[in-house]
Design a binder for these strands. Structure first.
Length: 380
DNA sequence: TCTGGGGTCCTAGGACCC
DNA sequence: TCTGGGGTCCTAGGACCC
């Protein structure tokens, strides 16, 4: 008997609500400062308190009306919006409120994936667009009522589409994109609206005449593949409304780091050494707090011209505590400065100490006899 | 105007091994 | 003497995101 051709059973659409908190740090502050509602508020280092090399961390929509943006130099923001109220950042508080947001979402959805401090992808217990939209409006209202926090939500059958929709929903809205409407929804948007398409990729696409997602859908696969490899093909599938299904890979943190921009550029070895040690000690403390050991140490330097270089070294075994972190980072700083001394001899603007190849404390290291038979062992 | 701090993922070459 | 293909690890840099 001939085998029956495999029937393609259409997967039932799984709806996802992409929740993006509006002006999150500012909104957190406003919960205890209702008097500031409706005013231009900026979370970041207030330039009026002295010269700063910092940037805007979050700006209320009233401040954005003046051209203030996240990641903008604080000095510029102060000029754009002199009447802004500046508040210093309180990260422990924002992290605690983010945890409350996630808890609220988990009470209402079987699956919540936190993607940053102020964003989460939430599975909708719904089987159609109308049900998914109802669910999104419910969680939006709940976050507002229970925590006093505004959010924007995109709803779609793919996380990436839902995220793009959440951007279009700002501030405070809900945008739903049914599966058969994805291509039409995306077509008029600039390619930069797609997560992962930044200035460089945008320039590459524009060089082949692609400025909108609509044009991306029509672009020849060969050109996309030649310029952007697999990512180019992925983009084209998304633009045509048929994005590849997302696969979730669960794993622990990949890296941790601690950084410091110096008050003024410096080439003073003892000062730089001191900074590296302090960063390493602080980082070792947070790693210990998370019960993480490290196997690779990275030291990064940003030079006075803003160029960044980094050097890393793997350790023979996983380490914990500040000793290995600190001495390895100091050695790497040595090597970077030595190389620079034979070249441009630039001063240092910022330093960063990183830990990579992290392993959970208590997660047993494999012993030699646990390696599979036939696996060669290298003895150094 | 002059650019923070904390992350993720990808690529690519060389070393080294089978 | 010249010839491989495949795999992993290490390192550096780039692009991007919030």
């Amino acid at each position: 008997m001939p085998a029956l051709p495999a029937r393609r059973v259409p997967e039932p659409d799984r709806w996802v609500a992409y929740v993006d908190m509006d002006a999150f740090y500012v909104s957190c502050e406003l919960t205890s400062r209702p008097d500031l509602a409706g005013r231009p508020v900026i979370v970041g280092p207030d330039p009026a308190r002295g010269p700063t090399r910092g940037v805007v961390l979050s700006a209320s929509y009233e401040a954005r009306a003046f051209g203030v943006r996240s990641a903008q130099p604080a000095a510029l923001a102060a000029r754009l919006c002199p009447e802004a109220v500046w508040l210093p950042a309180d990260f422990p508080r924002y992290e605690a409120m983010a945890e409350s947001v996630r808890a609220g979402l988990r009470r209402r959805s079987p699956r919540v994936v936190a993607l940053s401090i102020d964003e989460a992808a939430v599975d909708c217990p719904a089987s159609d667009a109308a049900g998914a939209e109802r669910f999104a409006r419910e969680i939006q209202a709940a976050l507002r009522a229970e925590l006093g926090l505004p959010s924007s939500i995109g709803v779609a059958t793919h996380r990436t589409v839902a995220k793009i929709a959440s951007d279009r929903a700002k501030p405070g809205g809900v945008v739903v994109v049914p599966p058969d409407a994805i291509a039409a929804f995306l077509a008029p948007l600039p390619v930069g609206a797609i997560p992962g398409v930044g200035p460089k990729t945008r320039a590459v696409l524009e060089s082949i005449g692609v400025a909108t997602v609509g044009a991306l859908a029509e672009a020849p696969t060969s050109a996309l593949r030649a310029r952007l490899g697999g990512f180019g093909e992925e983009l084209r599938r998304l633009a045509r409304g048929r994005p590849a299904p997302e696969v979730e890979v669960e794993h622990g943190p990949r890296s941790r780091s601690a950084a410091r921009t110096l008050p003024a550029d410096s080439a003073d070895r003892s000062e730089l050494d001191r900074d590296v040690t302090e960063l390493a000690v602080g980082l070792a403390g947070s790693l210990a707090h998370e019960h993480l050991r490290y196997q690779t140490v990275t030291l990064a330097v940003r030079w006075t011209d803003f160029e960044r270089v980094q050097k890393s070294r793997s350790l023979p075994a996983a380490q914990s505590g500040p000793q290995a972190l600190s001495t390895t980072a100091a050695r790497l700083l040595d090597e970077l400065l030595a190389a620079e001394a034979g070249g441009r001899r630039r001063a240092v603007r910022a330093l960063s100490v990183g830990a990579e190849r992290l392993v959970r404390e208590g997660a047993r290291q494999r012993r030699l006899d646990e390696f599979g038979a036939g696996t060669a062992l290298t003895v150094k």
